[in-house]
């Protein structure tokens, strides 16, 4: 009897903590992304994607009663040519088994980590991450790069989104309806997200879009008058670029 009582907490703990893997499918619209393939923006600009890296932090699963189960940790998701784009595992966490009504997280580095001395930070932070922003200390949160196929030839473009104002909140929970159901059995499971990379190119107010014919817009990374509106457009689009895959 006593031995049974002694083992109870251990048994409960193992039942509570189920391993969950967060996976990502990269999409262009509803199709799987392929790196060397040429796509078109809604404005008819042909392009290819070459690199995507972004931070995921402040992850939490949302219970049916609205309470959140937080998963510690910060990860750097990385996608590049000759590497898989579908079902890529980006994070592992332990959560209590049970029913959830969604997941929420931020694309970015939490404010309290974003401005520490990058020389002393370890991966996935620090300068070796390739995400440190030297002229504007802090990290690039979302780094998308590719080429535009312009009449004059291939031109490289980048979208580097960062600074505390552009930490992207992703909220994939629904407590009102039963539309979102995530069941985590005691043995664990995975949550797969679709990320529509092309969402960044949707036009904003007044039809504003990232026009790669203009050289100044091929480097979207600061807050100059010319680029700040477009940064906001991309930021707004990115909030709805993630969806639950299953």
């Amino acid at each position: 009897m006593k031995a049974w009582l002694f083992l109870l907490p251990l048994g409960l703990a193992s039942a509570l903590a189920a391993p969950v893997e967060l996976k990502i499918n990269l999409r262009v619209g509803d199709q799987p992304l392929q790196f060397a393939q040429t796509y078109q923006t809604p404005q008819g600009q042909p392009y290819q994607i070459e690199l995507l890296k972004f931070y995921i932090s402040e992850v939490a699963l949302v219970r049916p009663d609205g309470r959140e189960v937080r998963a510690e940790g910060l990860v750097l998701a990385e996608f590049k040519r000759e590497a898989p784009t579908q079902g890529v595992s980006v994070m592992k966490m332990d959560v209590p088994a049970g029913q959830y009504r969604g997941i929420r997280f931020n694309v970015g580095v939490p404010r309290e980590l974003n401005h520490l001395d990058a020389g002393t930070q370890q991966m996935p932070l620090g300068v070796n991450s390739g995400m440190y922003w030297a002229w504007n200390p802090g990290y690039i949160f979302y780094r998308l790069e590719g080429v535009a196929l312009l009449p004059e030839g291939k031109q490289k473009w980048v979208i580097h989104m960062g600074t505390d104002a552009f930490r992207i909140p992703v909220r994939l929970q629904d407590l009102q309806t039963r539309r979102v159901q995530i069941n985590i059995p005691p043995t664990g499971g995975s949550i797969t997200l679709n990320l529509d990379v092309a969402k960044a190119f949707q036009p904003g107010p007044g039809g504003a879009f990232v026009d790669w014919r203009k050289q100044s817009l091929r480097q979207l990374h600061g807050l100059s008058p010319e680029t700040s509106l477009l940064m906001s457009v991309v930021y707004f689009n990115m909030q709805t670029a993630f969806s639950l895959a299953n």
Binding site: D117, A134, N136
Partner: peptide, 14 residues
């Protein structure tokens, strides 16, 4: 840097 936003040489060189 011209904005003066980098705190030290190690990080500037990035």
């Amino acid at each position: 840097f011209w904005e003066g936003r980098s705190p030290r040489l190690e990080l500037q060189a990035v």
